[in-house]
Design a protein around this nucleic acid. Structure first.
Lengths: 261, 261
DNA sequence: AGGAGGATTACCATTGAGCGGGAATCCGAA
DNA sequence: TTCGGATTCCCGCTCAATGGTAATCCTCCT
């Protein structure tokens, strides 16, 4: 499936084009887009014109282009992400009201944590999570919660890889991680001090779907040494249960919580 | 640009496919997708496979497909919508805390109001706004605010069309609408009782960008006859100013507020 | 078990959309 | 005015995309 000598399909090039935009580059000239994507000039212009016709891209007065409203609309309207987000938001607001720092909702995607919602932009803490941003699984509390409730086979393959050590406290030893995962399953939460940036700690709990599998991780990021884990975990857990129930979860059955292992 | 006898480009078909998904149909079989899009069977399967390869679509255990996480991620990450949404959300939360019913943020797109964020899901009121949903301009308070601050040429062309009357109070007469728009500009808000559904009223105010043009409309939906407009408008206005300032707006210059007309 | 009906995959001849190099043109800054 | 980059125009080549038909798989239902 590729009309191009490079052996790439239009869809692939479409992805390249959309990928060229991120939160730091929401608009650019077509020429720059061509440079960023590495596509031949002419091809870029032709493709961009097609996309402009469908309003998937939009041209601004200056001539620069950006991702079109239509694209956002189509994807948001049909994506399952909205359902999860809408179920979670009210409870996240409650958490945020109490914790005051930063509350995030993340899912597992392509061996990374993808954050799909985030409340709070407290400048006093270091929090590198962004909506639609990614962070490594083994270096975030959310990631460890998600991993802990993943199928054993996935855990094995994940732990078989080399893991980057970001800070002193980042866990990279598979054996140690396995013990942590077990603990996370047992206790129902993950509390990780400074595993990705030394200044901040994360506390995360799982959110369940109707089939009792873990859909997402709800977490708060707080300044290191102000974790106050004991007080915050119950808040998170209550909220996570609320979200889970909104998603159609009917309460855990004894024993099934850990069935994935 | 079309390899197909029907004269449609791949991009066009891509749009058709993504459009087939909405909040009521977040996943379906490939065959059903083919039916909904009207594309030839073989073509549908081939295209879907391409999209699956790029993870723009995802296959679920049952075989049904849905819009992929990657798609949501790419679009969200690069879209300008996120910036607006992130600027608005904290202030919307404040409004929602006070008003308790439903708070929305809408923009003007393709002659309709497109809602990009919504807080509150109070079942006691009739509120048909949805995130990534659309409503007509002339039958929503948000729409009228946006229209009131649009270029005169756009207003003229818009008012030249026939307008649907949804309820008793829906305004459809161009002359009357013009007077209302002027009033909205002057007072700084729109308060519309039951113009789309008779049971609910909307109150909306404009959100400005750095160049003093209107970027969005912030609004609340409340039960009819409980409008309490006098008390709610200040809350909305304060929030809207906050959002505007987050967007880089530097305070209105006397007279420029209405410069678009 | 058998079979009906739909979903999915396999096959394949046809063809025009996509491709991209090159050159011309436009445009803003120096 | 000159210059460099952005954008558009031109055009022949070619293979990816197309979509019909048919085989296969799958899931209920009898």
């Amino acid at each position: 499936m590729a009309n191009s000598p490079s052996g790439e399909s239009i869809i692939g090039r479409f992805v390249r084009i959309v990928s060229a935009f991120d939160d730091r580059h929401t608009s650019m000239s077509v020429a720059e887009l061509g440079r960023r994507t590495g596509l031949p000039v002419t091809t870029t212009y032709r493709l961009v014109n097609d996309l402009l016709l469908e309003r998937l891209l939009e041209r601004e007065p200056g001539g620069d282009i950006h991702i079109g409203t239509r694209m956002w609309e189509l994807v948001s309207r049909g994506s399952k992400m909205l359902g999860l987000r809408e179920a979670a938001l009210p409870f996240m607001e409650d958490v945020q009201a109490v914790v005051q720092h930063s509350t995030t909702l993340g899912i597992l995607d392509s061996d990374e944590v993808l954050y799909i919602e985030r409340l709070g932009s407290d400048k006093t803490i270091v929090d590198i999570t962004k909506i639609a941003g990614r962070l490594p699984v083994h270096a975030t509390s959310s990631g460890l919660v998600l991993l802990a409730h993943s199928p054993a086979a996935y855990q094995d393959s994940f732990l078989a890889r080399p893991l980057t050590k970001f800070t002193e406290t980042t866990l990279t030893d598979p054996a140690v991680l396995r013990r942590h995962l077990a603990e996370i399953r047992q206790r129902g939460f993950a509390a990780m001090p400074g595993v990705i940036v030394p200044e901040s700690s994360g506390i995360a709990v799982p959110v369940f779907g109707p089939d009792n599998t873990v859909r997402a991780a709800l977490s708060v990021v707080v300044p290191r040494n102000e974790e106050n884990t004991a007080a915050r975990v119950p808040v998170l857990m209550a909220a996570a249960r609320g979200i889970s129930r909104s998603l159609g979860w009917r309460g855990e059955l004894k024993g099934t919580l850990r069935q994935s292992h």
